[in-house]
């Protein structure tokens, strides 16, 4: 296996979103692994956490915040940034809860009143229908 071929394979892996490459020919095997840090978690594996936060408590003044349009919900300002709000967090009227992306245009969704985020009902990057509930909110008295 000559160095030019190895360079070509390194370029191919580098330019791709893949993380590992293995090449075998004529008794020689080349293995390349990208250093990517932590393994991403599977969205399905993270999902149950959302449900558990819904309290089975007595009646409270709950309301939902719904998606205004069909689009993609973003719970962070940018990938890797901390979430805009988390379960149990107190929010004030006008605070940005999430962003809805449709055709490269981002629309901020803001809290209508003061309250607490009782549950986050969606995952970042998920497609949401117009009218779909995104957050369950508990209003302040």
């Amino acid at each position: 296996m000559d160095n030019d071929l190895i360079k070509t394979l390194i370029d191919a892996l580098e330019a791709s979103s893949l993380t590992e490459l293995e090449y075998s020919k004529g008794g020689a095997t080349l293995r390349l692994v990208k250093w990517t840090g932590a393994l991403p978690t599977h969205p399905a594996a993270a999902a149950p956490a959302v449900k558990r936060t819904e309290p089975a408590a007595p009646w409270r003044p709950f309301s939902t915040v719904n998606a205004p349009v069909f689009g993609v919900v973003h719970l962070q300002r940018s990938p890797g940034a901390p979430p805009l709000v988390t379960t149990g967090e107190a929010v004030s009227a006008g605070q940005v809860l999430c962003m809805i992306e449709a055709m490269k245009i981002f629309t901020e969704l803001r809290a209508e009143g003061d309250g607490t985020v009782a549950a986050v009902l969606v995952q970042s990057g998920q497609e949401v229908e117009a009218g779909q509930a995104l957050f369950r909110m508990e209003r302040s008295r």
Binding site: N3, I6, K7, A28, T29, L30, R31, L32, K34, W35
Partner: peptide
Amino acid sequence: ERVRVLSETLEGTSIGLLELTTP
């Protein structure tokens, strides 16, 4: 020499492991 050339090639990439096995 081969190790030097390969190390240089890896420089600046995000590749953390290179394993080459020949007979």
